[in-house]
Design a protein around this nucleic acid. Sequence first.
DNA 1: CAATGTCCTAATGTTAACATTCAGACAATG
DNA 2: CATTGTCTGAATGTTAACATTAGGACATTG
Lengths: 230, 230
Amino acid sequence: MTDRVRVAPARRRGLAGEVADRIRDAIFSGAYPPGAQLREVELSGELDVSRGPVREALLLLEREGLVRSAWHRGATVTRFAPEDIAELDSLRDVLEQLAVRRVIAHAAPEDLAAIDAAVERMDRAGSEHEMVRCDIAFHDAVYAAARHRRLLEAWQAIRSQVHLFLLTRTGLSSADYLAHVAKEHRGLAAALRARDTRRALALFADHRRHAFDALSDTGDGTDGPPAYEP
Amino acid sequence: MTDRVRVAPARRRGLAGEVADRIRDAIFSGAYPPGAQLREVELSGELDVSRGPVREALLLLEREGLVRSAWHRGATVTRFAPEDIAELDSLRDVLEQLAVRRVIAHAAPEDLAAIDAAVERMDRAGSEHEMVRCDIAFHDAVYAAARHRRLLEAWQAIRSQVHLFLLTRTGLSSADYLAHVAKEHRGLAAALRARDTRRALALFADHRRHAFDALSDTGDGTDGPPAYEP
DNA sequence: CAATGTCCTAATGTTAACATTCAGACAATG
DNA sequence: CATTGTCTGAATGTTAACATTAGGACATTG
């Protein structure tokens, strides 16, 4: 019945998917900084496709929160204010808690193996850019292991924003930073494998705090620190 | 009463938004039952627009989870299996917890007034269809009061699915059921107004359980009851 | 008779031309 | 000199024709 265990069978996604990938990469590479206008004719000329797929791709990117668009005013790369960062943090918080619980409750061995593989790949990350990609890939693996389609979609709706945030957060010393991040993720994977819910939740919370504390101040008077006490 | 109380400013969304509204209503009305094919030419003929806006509207509806589409295979109305219902329940769980905390932490008086207004409107609900609309509108107000853009978007990504589920869940005796639901929501609003986090979380959890317990069994061997114990 | 290969049709994917709308420049006016 | 009104140009929104593909019907063959 539900033997569709293929995680990524969407090999052929059509032109729009390809276009979305290329635009996303262009944004990550800094070619289109936050606030920049994404003109349809410009993009269609650059990517050598017509405006149809470009239009569809922009809708896809809007779904990911990378792009904001208004009627007859076109699309622009999303700009992140301090409150946006706080929003990403708090939403990631609850989503990841659910993900961790689901992974521990019922994850297949192959899912845990995929998570471990993602951790292993971190050791070979040379640049900070690459490490961010690995970081995101690790969390992808966790959400995939949760086996919760709508949770995965909710993560994908903020995934690229988190990616962009981690990139623009001009970084720490890349020397021991890379090693530190890798070690941290090893701990996350170990907690999941041990099915230690309490420890896993705590470690994931620490991990998020480390990522978001890179900002000197959140500057959000209404929100305060990203801490939630029951 | 005020007819056009547009909370969000009457943003011009273009034809695609209108088309999406009409298709969504058609799905809710049962014109397109779950699993039905949504053919672009058929829709464009029926709604008297060309295929462009229809195509864009289908992407919008896919974002809401009302529609699934595959490459060169078109779009179909989403079919809900028991595991889908469980997914909606568990995701709603964590999203609403965050929403409740945010509302209690920092909601403007006008937000609370809007929630109360939504509750009042429930008393005038005649049919079950209308009550479901009011129910969704109440939760809309709660998420709006949370003042958390991405949380609102996450809710909107499952909102229509919850709406459809509440409709297809062929219902209880509409006589005292309507009164019961209205009373329940009055309690939710009161807890929010009293800023009683503990009580609000408990009541919201009960509310979800009541909605989802209408099904005799979840039939999901892997998930069990929608209970999460720390 | 079952299996398989080819063809055909009906749908979606893509393109390019046409219509509409917004934002800024520039001039006229108080 | 500030303000307002119109105008223009460039972008998006919309439409219709063209190309491509998936799935099934039918005949062929072992």
